[in-house]
Amino acid sequence: MFSNSAFRIFEESIVNYHIKNDVNQPFNNPYPETDIDHLLYRKNWIDTVQWHYEDIIRDPEIDPVKALELKRKIDASNQDRTDLVEYIDSYFLNKYQSVQTLPNARINTES
């Protein structure tokens, strides 16, 4: 089932992030670029780094210059996340484009 596979990939991403537990560590995606698993792993990695960015910026003692640098990283991360969600949406749109909808089917716009 797709949900089980996605959950496993999300868990793998989190575990791999916490090996170094550093927002500046290099990103290494173990899945082929042509696979949905690649997009899911990358999306969850972005989310994981983002959560840690947000923890860092909440520090009341953070240097204002470092806070501004981090704010710009958060903004860039948000844009990367938004773009990636669009890719994931496109994947599903392409995958299911030939499915005929039933007359009473409800339309959902979020992946």
Rank of each mutant, 00 (worst) to 15 (best):
M1W: 07
F2C: 03
F7K: 11
R8E: 09
I9Y: 02
I9S: 02
I9H: 04
E11T: 14
S13C: 05
I14E: 09
Y17S: 03
H18Q: 13
I19K: 15
K20C: 07
N21Y: 08
N21L: 04
N24C: 01
P26K: 11
N28P: 00
N29P: 01
P30Q: 03
Y31V: 01
Y31I: 02
P32Y: 02
E33A: 13
T34N: 13
I36K: 07
I36T: 08
D37R: 15
L39R: 09
L40W: 14
L40H: 10
Y41C: 08
K43I: 05
N44H: 15
W45M: 13
W45Y: 12
D47C: 05
V49P: 06
Q50W: 04
Q50V: 00
Q50F: 09
Q50H: 12
H52D: 15
Y53I: 10
E54S: 00
E54K: 13
E54C: 03
D55G: 06
D55K: 09
I57W: 07
D59T: 05
E61L: 11
I62G: 05
D63C: 08
P64I: 11
P64H: 06
K66V: 15
A67D: 08
A67E: 14
L68I: 02
E69P: 00
L70C: 02
L70A: 02
L70E: 03
L70R: 00
K71D: 05
R72P: 00
R72I: 03
K73P: 01
N78F: 07
T82D: 13
T82R: 11
Y87M: 10
Y87D: 11
I88H: 02
F92A: 06
N94M: 12
K95F: 01
K95S: 02
Q97R: 09
Q97P: 00
T101S: 13
T101E: 04
T101Q: 08
N104I: 08
A105D: 12
N108T: 07
